[in-house]
Amino acid sequence: MKFGVIVFPGSNCDYDTFYVLKNIFMQDTVFIWHKEHDLKNVDCVILPGGFSYGDYLRSGAIAKFSPIMQEVKEFALKGGLVLGICNGFQVLLELGLLPGAMLRNKNLKFLCQFVHINIVNNKTCFTHKGKKRQVLKIPIAHFDGNYYAPPETIAELKKNNQIIFQYSDANGMVTEQANVNGSLENIAGLINKEGNVLGMMPHPERASESILGSTDGRIIFESIINYLG
């Protein structure tokens, strides 16, 4: 199995993601520059965190027009696994592979801190190694993570169990206080209807080694590897 990490100008978690997959999980992993047209036969595409194109216009708005994104879109529509982390999630929303949009955090602050999220749905290829309602401690680092979608979209997400992670407290309670950025329904991560495209604001690649304070992010990578294996 092979992983591909897309690199945009302004990506800054590309090396972290590559490192975790390659050195921690010992997976065949390649970088794919955004101007390329070939996904190099990867089995899973990861859109890493960062500030693609300086977040000009809107977060993720310019990256969606990068040449490789056409390939990523086709790959996703054919059922290929795509994981968008932070800025990668924003790109997936702009691209329309996931519904909704991101607004500025409710407190207008750039948030860089550990948060707790819980697994709302563990019946996906990205979360099946975790338990339902398991609490994960994973860091966030974003300005625009305040998830918004019209009420009918939110209803649809709930109906289809597409909400995968919710901000919660350390005990897994989904509270207003735990909702650091103001996201509707405390949404920290969601999946498409087909179940092959996941976007999440927290950074699992920053929580995959105990030296970094948490290894809870490993569940996501372990789930993918197990699923593909």
Binding site: L57, A61, Y148
Partner: peptide
Amino acid sequence: KVLANPII
């Protein structure tokens, strides 16, 4: 298509 995000 570009300048605005019609969702928001």
